[in-house]
Design a protein around this nucleic acid. Sequence first.
DNA 1: AGAACTTACGATGTACGTAACGATT
DNA 2: AATCGTTACGTACATCGTAAGTTCT
Lengths: 307, 307
Amino acid sequence: MNFQQLRYIREAVRCGFNLTDVAATLHTSQPGVSRQVRELEEELGIEIFSRAGKRLTGLTPPGAALLPYVNRLLQEADNIKRASHELQGREDGKLSIAATHSQARYALPQVVKEFRQRYPRVSLHLHQGSPKQLAEMLLCGEADIAVATEALASYEALATLPCYRWTHSIVVPPDHPLLALDRPVTLKDLAAYPLITYELGYTGRSHIDDAFASAGLPYEVVMTAMDADVIKTYVELEMGVGIVASIAVDPDRDRQLRILDAGHLFQINVTRLGLRKGQWLPKYAFAFIEMFVPTLNQVVVTQALNG
Amino acid sequence: MNFQQLRYIREAVRCGFNLTDVAATLHTSQPGVSRQVRELEEELGIEIFSRAGKRLTGLTPPGAALLPYVNRLLQEADNIKRASHELQGREDGKLSIAATHSQARYALPQVVKEFRQRYPRVSLHLHQGSPKQLAEMLLCGEADIAVATEALASYEALATLPCYRWTHSIVVPPDHPLLALDRPVTLKDLAAYPLITYELGYTGRSHIDDAFASAGLPYEVVMTAMDADVIKTYVELEMGVGIVASIAVDPDRDRQLRILDAGHLFQINVTRLGLRKGQWLPKYAFAFIEMFVPTLNQVVVTQALNG
DNA sequence: AGAACTTACGATGTACGTAACGATT
DNA sequence: AATCGTTACGTACATCGTAAGTTCT
């Protein structure tokens, strides 16, 4: 048993049991992969992959049972490599943050700025994607930290930590009838207008649907986008009433729009930080998290990482 | 980085940084060990061992920081090998139980008998030792399960689970004055006689000392032993009053002695089961535990193992 | 016919053991 | 002088890539 063999197993699962792809991904020859896989199976005494003739078709039951152990071992190996790099006492390295657009655009910039001043030699990578994509990035090791409001909690292998709470705001053009109301906006008021808001699965969208649904109000979303900037643009074009995260609007910067609080209409949202359980993180990653959410110090985060 | 190198590191620590011993223990040549250690250090970019000239003297700070990761990885590797053996669908294997004399002699026999009937092809190894030794056996992988009443809980890397509660009994020769009392025995009564009981660190001995100490009573332990059989033998010789675990005495079998309950005198003892955290256990090990303590099913035990 | 895995084979590289050397106690 | 680690060197084994072969779609 060696690391190479285990890597081949892991990659074979990721590549849909196509050893040719595995070889290509890991920059080696296909016969070599084939051989190593068989040798590992022989050494362990179990068939890991089910085969239709010569082709691999999937995992056998024992193979499936073994896979989590293989993944954990390879993760430990990775931890050793990462840890030893830091133990050289250097403050350089790489930090990959994966975030949804909203987070990357409105919540992270200040932290990123502060982080760069403190750790100028760490190269910072900011990936963007849907919450689901963020989870995938964490799981395959592409990202170290994910920040999103939805859907990170549904993976067993991920740990999530609450960062901050926020509510929605309504954005309208300057002459909109909603501004003439002498009372707080209601869901019924809103339902009378075409709405522009986030796509499903993004930035608290589900809470918006929930609110209208539980109030029994029919409503029309005429447009959806992944980010507040796009939404605001179309509100300016008078295509409808926008519902966005409060952090995404600012009376000073968005002078061509008017902002109404919607904190009383929709459920409070909690933005969460996602990490891969069991993963070792460099010191500067803990520092980043603490800069973002001061209560999440290294002790708290470590606890979450180790179950 | 490969398994061999990591094994050398682990063994070097265990062997007190003597690479000659490492080579002997792992059945290889000393220069090979030396070379592999250096190559790993070079690859990871850190000095793992501190050296006085050529001799290894200990771990460097980064080496000490890295060691836990190395140990965890090697344990994962071991888990894979053990798990794959079981996944072959065979019901054979090995189970090492480490227990104190009291447990091995009085608590385990019934379980062992039942286990052997259910898993006749599993070879069962019963090790004996002091609670401290049991902990060491668990940590170095010599034992899979430990059973003891004291001192297992004090290791970070071990998980403990309560098995059963028991109290002490007093044993005396048939004509002893304590038998003439028309009321329950008190600590003061006991303190009047020379006592024979367990050695320090064994089978609830600390609770005995605690009871006398907090009552402010001077008492004399004239003899200590690691097991109830020895204690009973010397009680028979009229050398003193014995205090032993209740499970260790039986009116039918110990006809030459008289037994008095001491449950009201000393704190209740809890016998605990010790396991190494993160260690994979074969199905039959879970079965053994459940036979011993029916409430400790696989789910409960797995939870304890994973923190 | 093409895609995918296996077999065969030769080249390279790595690991290991023996033996000699150097340093420390 | 003895112990312990390093250097040197030759052998054996493992890995890897290319090329040809086989089987399934």
